[in-house]
Amino acid sequence: MLSRSLTVLARMTVTFLVIVTLVFFATRMTGNPVDFVVGEGLTSEDRALLIRYFELDGSWWAQYRAFLRGFIDGNFGLSFIERRPVAEIVAARIWPSLQLLLSAMALTLVVALPLGILAAIRRDHWTGSAAMAVAFLGYAVPNFVLAVFLILVFAYWLNWLPVVGNATALHFILPTVTLAAGLIAALTRFTRNAMLDVLGQDYMRTARAKGLPERRVILHHGLRNAGITILSVIGLQVAGLAAAGSVVVESIFAWPGIGDLLVRSAIRRDYPVLQFGVIAVAAAVIVINAAVDLAYAWADPRLRRGTLA
């Protein structure tokens, strides 16, 4: 277990460095930010002036070194547009995103696990198909269409729920449902398939033969083993979500989250914010994945025994 943890740690570090470097050079390739930050129609003289002012006149290599220095002295620079420290800008966006992410994950688990199990054990019954149909709907429509639809029904016409920002618990309902819809669909399918995989296994038959109640067989033996697959999917989904899957939802509900920040920074070429934001998200995802990896190893006895290549 220890050697696996070390391997995971090493992998995390390498991944992180690769991303840091890629992000830096990718941003430099997409155009000079001055044209976006200051607006159109600059004279060439003024343009040169501002390029110097934003310290974009050095070579890429010099800029890269200055950028790496940020990791040592903690100074990641100022936003080109907001002119305040990028760490401050990104930090303010993380908590609202995380709140939305957690509430969407909670809803997803509560809905998707029972639906998936139901769909698996009632595979030949209409309830199984119905469970899949419910799950399917969430994955069948672009989430912004769903979001606007929910807004029109529950806010515009019925006037039950608010739509702007994250001030109260009520504000969470529509964005959470929108965000969870796609996740529920994915997780239900994976749960169903993972359950189907284990339902046919020998140990299930053994458990039944031992006279254990069906409920216990499914929940304890079935779900425990299917859990390995499900866990990996949750890991991927959390990552996908934290990684700007929520851009659309944040934009529509004026949610002050990080996905919205990243896309806007990318479009406006606010490199310092973009770099730090991507790196912050990447770091979070890497940590989550490492945790899932370790949990995965813990959950799968064969891997626990240390057959890691």
Partner: peptide, 17 residues
């Protein structure tokens, strides 16, 4: 407040937000 989507802005008027 910044609300980029037209449908959200109109809805916010209707809900009284």
């Amino acid at each position: 407040r910044h609300v980029p989507e037209v449908a959200s802005r109109l809805t916010a008027l209707r809900t009284g937000e």
